[in-house]
Amino acid sequence: MFRFIRTLVADFTDLLFPVLCLGCSRSLGDNEKLLCTHCRINLPETNQHRLPYDQNLLNKFAGKVPIHFVASFVLYSKAGTVQKLIHQIKYKGQKEAAKEIAGWYGYQLKSESELIKEIDVIIGVPLHKSRLQQRGYNQADWIAEGLSEALNVPARTDILIRKRFKESQTRKNRLERWENVKTVFAVPNPEEIEGKNIVIVDDVLTTGSTIEACAIELLRAGCKSVGVLTLATTR
């Protein structure tokens, strides 16, 4: 009887407040999570984890900082499903979605890629404490947590810090982005990462300026290598 009542209440709640697909806003079915089957199947996956030394991605960092590998889960395009997903994750409180999707990617990496074998620590690109307070969460940390659980590699939020608040990178070009972040990050306890292989994670890889600034500080602090994993990348 109680099970029947719980099911009835749940069905009534779903009728009044349906759970919607984060990609197309249609109601999700019983076995769907975050995305409807159509949006999930049609995610523009890059398969870059199979080609981690693809020069197109590494060129974003060439001559600036030695990045061991770069891979992103899906391609980002304006007005596409991935843009909608990232917007929901970054600005609409969908932090659990960041973790869930990162988990999808993590299990894909675990079963199809050699990248994860030498990873010691996963680090999300940090937010300044004022931005963190404003937003309430750091989506990169939730992405790191999703990857961490799937890959069984520790995620740390205390290794890399953002020293100063900087304005949004969204409308800046490559040079402006670099000038905006080049002295922003720091590693307060270098002994924590000495000789370790670090992976930096973020939501979207665009020019690579922010990750470049993070990698410089991590390498300067004595880590062995830096790799990059993101949920999405621009073409």
Rank of each mutant, 00 (worst) to 15 (best):
D11L: 15
V228K: 08
A97D: 03
D11K: 10
V82L: 07
L16W: 04
Y137G: 04
A144D: 06
R156W: 04
T210F: 10
T7L: 11
G227D: 00
A62G: 03
E149V: 00
P126H: 02
K163W: 02
L8C: 08
A140Y: 05
L51V: 14
Y53S: 15
L132C: 03
T157Q: 12
K196G: 00
S77F: 09
C223K: 05
L229R: 06
P18C: 12
G80P: 07
L8E: 06
L205C: 06
V204F: 12
F69K: 05
I116E: 07
F185I: 05
A102C: 12
L43W: 05
I143W: 00
I116Y: 13
L35G: 11
I119V: 15
W178G: 04
L34E: 14
Q134W: 10
A144W: 06
E176Q: 15
I123V: 15
N47C: 03
E145P: 04
E96Y: 14
Q133E: 12
I67Q: 07
P44D: 08
Y107I: 10
G136A: 08
R162Q: 09
K196V: 00
Y76G: 01
S113P: 05
I119C: 08
E194A: 10
S113Q: 00
I200G: 03
R135A: 05
Y53Q: 14
L28E: 14
R235T: 15
C36M: 09
N59T: 07
V184T: 12
L20R: 14
T37R: 12
S209R: 08
L160W: 02
Q55G: 03
F12G: 09
T210W: 08
K117T: 11
R50S: 15
E217G: 13
D11N: 13
Q169T: 07
V121Y: 13
S77R: 13
I119G: 00
E194I: 09
N47K: 11
A140W: 02
H38L: 13
S148Q: 04
S148N: 03
E118Q: 11
D203W: 11
F165I: 00
D141F: 03
F2E: 15
T206Y: 10
L28H: 14
L132P: 05
L109G: 09
T210S: 15
T170P: 01
K84A: 14
I216F: 05
L229N: 06
N42D: 09
L85R: 02
G93Y: 10
G195S: 08
K92D: 10
P190S: 06
A62F: 15
E145Q: 14
S111L: 11
I211A: 09
L205V: 02
Q83M: 05
A221Y: 09
I89K: 07
I159E: 03
E212S: 14
G195T: 05
A144Q: 06
R177N: 00
D11H: 12
E167L: 07
G23Q: 10
E167F: 04
P66G: 01
L115P: 14
H87F: 11
I211D: 05
L218R: 00
N180E: 01
H128E: 08
S209E: 08
G80V: 06
L57S: 13
S148C: 04
K163H: 02
N189F: 13
R50W: 04
V181H: 01
L20H: 11
T233P: 07
L205E: 06
K166F: 05
E112C: 10
L43C: 05
V201E: 01
E149W: 00
Q88F: 02
K90Q: 12
T183R: 13
